[in-house]
Design a protein around this nucleic acid. Sequence first.
DNA 1: GAACAATGATAACAGTGTCAACATAAGAGT
DNA 2: ACTCTTATGTTGACACTGTTATCATTGTTC
Lengths: 190, 190
Amino acid sequence: MNAPYHHGDLRAAALQMGMERLESQEQPDLGLRALARDLGVSATALYRHFPNKDALLDALALEGLNRLGRNQAEAAAKAGGGHDGFAEVGITYVTWAVENPALLRLIYNRVGQVDLAADDPTAMGEAFFQLRAGIAATMPDEMSKDQRAAAALHAWSLVHGLAMLILDGQVAYDPAMVRKVVLMTDFRDC
Amino acid sequence: MNAPYHHGDLRAAALQMGMERLESQEQPDLGLRALARDLGVSATALYRHFPNKDALLDALALEGLNRLGRNQAEAAAKAGGGHDGFAEVGITYVTWAVENPALLRLIYNRVGQVDLAADDPTAMGEAFFQLRAGIAATMPDEMSKDQRAAAALHAWSLVHGLAMLILDGQVAYDPAMVRKVVLMTDFRDC
DNA sequence: GAACAATGATAACAGTGTCAACATAAGAGT
DNA sequence: ACTCTTATGTTGACACTGTTATCATTGTTC
């Protein structure tokens, strides 16, 4: 009975193992067969819990998106608004990306395949909306609505692009440089 | 003899077919077998011209990188330096990305796998160096060296991040919005 | 023309995602 | 307690992929 026929909670176990790989490896092997093998289970068993591989990846990406969102919301609450507030939130984003490269990549890979403008508000779309709200929260109040939207997009683009360039190895990760680059954005004179 | 045993220039034909797919499809199928099939040739024939699939993708990415570099250099020369110059170059970058989504993705996917700090200056690393130089060329002269580096990284991150967000469908492509967002960066007060 | 290098084709191997069919366990209802 | 149903897991197979080893054909060079 050291190998019961039923696993107990294979879905959770699969997600946990996937998460561990995403956390510990830069280019994790998230193949269905590889995962199932290390879970001590047949490959097709996973199909009882996920309709296909993409669904599994989506679940992992959603979990990652929630973690990122919480991380950003936390930073936003701690830092407060204004120029310095945005800087802290932006640096938090880049730092999280550097610490979770595979997970961030998975998030954007998956979210790119999803129709965010769909009538059905996916869990994924919902989580992304919250992330955007967290970024927008640090924008100065005295702006017009359009300016706030542009400023939020500017901020998001900046930190996301910086994170991506670092993850892709184009730029060495240097916390002081990140701070400097993020601080170059000043919304006060807009 | 309507199907000669030797193709003539299979390498060039494969690259051209790959490029056409990268230009015409958002998620092109660049599998070796699929390419070979449509080229009317066996899958393994490609191994006479590329050591493996990654090498083929690298060649495509290099060509794309050269196109992007030329595009940027052209824009930089036309626009001149300074604040407006950067804006034009940045907008050019985003526009090119929107027009060549699969190619831009391939470039960054491939370049992420390459060791840019290698002793052997790869053709790919060389092309990327030129791209960076094109961006840095629009930075104001009156900055210190460190500030110029930070400003160039800021600019690159901004346009790259904005392009990625658009490509991933997080943000609808709106030329006016792009211009507004890029123009929010003002290096004069740094 | 013979030898050689370049380029192609075939067959096979290991790997993948996925489906159909079957097997086992757990739970519900009588 | 004994079914019947549902949930879950396994086996075998199919079509696909990148890759290699082996063999076939062509072009080139001495």
